[in-house]
Each structure stands twice: as structure tokens, then as C-alpha cells.
Computed example of a mutant assay.
Amino acid sequence: MAAHDIAVSDTRPPLDPLSERGWSLHRSESANADATVSELGKLGDRIGTRVGGRAGALEEVIEPHSADAAHPRSLSARYGLGALPFHTELSHRTRPCRYLLLGCIDPGSPAAATMLLDWQTLGFSPEELNLLEATPMLVRSGRRSFYTTILAPGGAFLRYDPGCLEAVDQRGRIALALIENRIAAASPQAHQWRQGDILIIDNWRVLHGRSPSDPASGRRLARILIDA
């Protein structure tokens, strides 16, 4: 076990390591896929309350899809098997989930990394933070579309998803360009998956994405979403 890995059976609160970098890596004590999914759920239930994902599912298995095979409102429908851009999970809802948990059932071959980027390291000035907090944006979510801002009041979380977030005026376009430019110049961390890995991501602090994937790689991750 690497020095930064934490066994699922560790009795320390699972949120402790998140305070340092916004995400933590845990290792399932079994390489069995069912055991990984079970332990993923146990970790999530120690943290908070599960939030329904697509179609209200409290536990999902996600895998790369080509654009024509993806859910029509997903990022995969736009980007397919190419790199998925950094985003905040559930940006299309009025309150994004607090934590995202991913468990590796199969890393795939060739494997695709999950990319992690703490938005607080992007060097926004006070004036830029004010722009992100004060500029209205449109979140497109079908009949549930709504207006909001990229930065929640008081900086509680950053809402960013190029698949659903749209500017409504010139200030909005400036705000989106600001984030896009900072992300392009950043140095994100890449997590290379191993079977049994479990990531806990502070979704209010860390944006995540995916490197390009192969259509027949076999990559499969279990996912649960948590409110806390």
C-alpha cells in the first residue's frame, strides 16, 4: 500500500485527508468488483446522505461512451471518447452534491486517468472572485433550467460545467473565458486507476475530468454522490 493510500477499514474519519488537497485515495482490501462497490457504499454512508444520479439511481456504474451512444444531456454526448473537460458534478442542479465517490471495478486497457484540479489553486484575484460570484449565468437543464452564478455566495462552491453553463451577457462570457484560461494554464493531478481504488472528491472544491479513452477499453467505475 502506497504511503498516500488509506485502507477502507481505517477507523479515522474518511474526510480528514480531504482537508489537505480536496480529495483522498482509499484502497479496497479486496480486488473483487462486488467488494469494491460494497466498500464504496460503506465509505459514502459514513460521510453523508446519498443523492440520486441519473434516473434517481443511488449507485451507478459509469463507462466511456462514444458521442452517439451517450445520454443526450451528458458531457459524453458532446465530447465522446475524447478528453472530458473539468467540471463540477451535478452542476445542472441548484445544489451540486458535496462529495463524489468513485470506485474502480476495472481500470480498462488502455487505462484512462481521472484528472483532478483544486479550483482554489487557480489564483483568482478578489476582483475576479467578485465577477464569478456576481455575474448571472444560465444553467440549461431542460424544463428545469435556471439562473445562478458560477461562484456560490461566500465562495462555498464553484459551479462549472461547459456542457450546461451558458453566459447571458458579455460579463458572463468574460467570466467563462477567465475560468477556461486558468484551467488551460493549470497543472492538474492525474489519478491512474488500479482495480480496488476508491476516490473521495470534494465536489465543491475539486473539478474533475477524464483523459481520452478507447472505445473497447473496458473501463468501469462505480459512482455514488453524497450530500453532507
Rank of each mutant, 00 (worst) to 15 (best):
A2D: 15
A2W: 12
H4N: 07
H4W: 07
D5R: 15
I6M: 13
I6Y: 13
D10Q: 13
R12W: 09
R12A: 14
L15P: 05
D16M: 13
L18G: 02
R21T: 06
R21P: 00
H26V: 01
H26I: 02
R27F: 07
R27N: 04
S30A: 10
A31V: 12
A33T: 11
D34Q: 12
E39H: 11
K42R: 15
D45R: 12
R46D: 02
T49L: 09
G52Q: 06
R54H: 13
A55T: 15
G56V: 02
G56F: 05
L58G: 08
V61P: 02
E63A: 13
P64G: 02
P64F: 11
A67M: 12
A69W: 14
H71G: 04
P72K: 10
P72S: 08
P72Y: 10
S74H: 11
S76V: 12
G80F: 13
L81R: 05
L81K: 05
F86I: 03
F86G: 00
E89I: 11
L90V: 11
L90G: 02
R93N: 11
T94Y: 10
Y99D: 00
Y99C: 01
Y99T: 01
L100E: 11
L100S: 09
L102G: 08
L102S: 03
L102Q: 06
G103R: 02
G103D: 06
C104M: 06
I105F: 08
P107M: 01
P107E: 01
P107F: 00
S109I: 04
P110E: 13
A111N: 05
A111L: 05
A113I: 02
L117G: 02
D118L: 01
Q120T: 15
T121N: 12
G123T: 01
G123H: 00
F124E: 03
L129C: 11
L131T: 08
L131M: 11
E133D: 10
P136N: 07
M137Y: 03
L138E: 10
R140N: 12
R143H: 12
F146L: 10
F146M: 10
T148M: 09
L151M: 13
P153S: 09
G155C: 06
F157G: 00
D161R: 01
P162D: 08
C164V: 11
L165S: 04
A167K: 12
Q170N: 14
R171N: 15
R173C: 10
I174M: 11
I179G: 03
E180V: 01
N181E: 14
R182D: 07
I183S: 05
A184I: 02
A185Y: 06
A186R: 09
Q189I: 09
Q192R: 15
W193Y: 03
W193V: 00
R194L: 10
Q195V: 15
D197Y: 01
L199K: 02
I200H: 03
I201S: 02
I201P: 00
R205F: 00
H208D: 03
R210S: 07
S211F: 00
S217I: 04
R219G: 03
I226F: 07
D227H: 08
D227W: 02
